[in-house]
Amino acid sequence: MLSLFSDSFVLYALAAGLALALVAGPLGSVVVWRRMAYFGDTLAHAALLGVALAIAAEQLPMLGVGLIGIIIAVLLFLLEKQKSLSSDTLLGILSHTALALGLIVFASIQARGFNISLMAYLFGDLLAVTPRDLVLMFASVVVILAVFSRIMNALISISINEDLARVDGVAVETVRFVFMILLALVVAVALKVVGVLLITALLIIPAATARLYARSPKQMVLLSAIVASLAVVLGLLASLQWDWPTGPAIVVAAAGLFFVSRLLFARVVAGGG
């Protein structure tokens, strides 16, 4: 089975998957703390619009997804300031508007004779990662991690209590906004790996698993990256072994790790009590 990894497309896939794991795990921890799963979903739905626009403009889909994600983040940030609608209502509006627009643009592209498969973007196409994709992904990952490590303490602080953070001199609004932009970039990185429909899974599930083992917020951030990486490796192996679609295989592997951990902890708790 290890001989599989001598194929270059498998190595590319592994590198791309690990690149995503390095950012999805840590940022996912914050998503879980701040209950931002719906924001992740909104970015994911909007990503389809980004893909469609990028294809129409003959650009890399990843660029389109990043750009649309940033626009969604800015819109949400501005709309949240109005305070007349709760943020989950706002997200519902943005999410489905973007999805509907995305489907319309997709249909019009297909009508113009482009032969594109929606499936590849919905569920990822990890085994089709090219060196050019990899360069763009790793560049994004470096930027995301650099910014994230700088604002991590502030993110932990505002996740605990925004008032306390503000009194301590944390620029709460700025930190929140920067984090939203980082998430938009993560979604762009995730496009090829798990596809738009499963992006949130890779943010949430490894973080939820890491929660069981971690004793401090920083431990959780580190462990999330490790758990996500493990899920990528296991998912890729399963995909190659049984010919599963790679994106869903990675998500299933992440879920498997979560449920196994839960069972282990349930036994520890039962045994200890």
């Binding site: 703390w33 303490n153 602080s157 008032d163 306390l164 001199g169 971690a214 917020p217 959780m220």
Partner: peptide, 26 residues
């Protein structure tokens, strides 16, 4: 330098946080 003691704060269960970490946040 203001030290603020709010009435109560709620730490989400999903965040592993010891008192030590809480003191060290800022």
């Amino acid at each position: 330098r203001i030290g603020y003691v709010p009435q109560r704060i709620h730490i989400p269960d999903v965040m592993p946080l010891r008192v030590l970490d809480f003191l060290n946040v800022s």
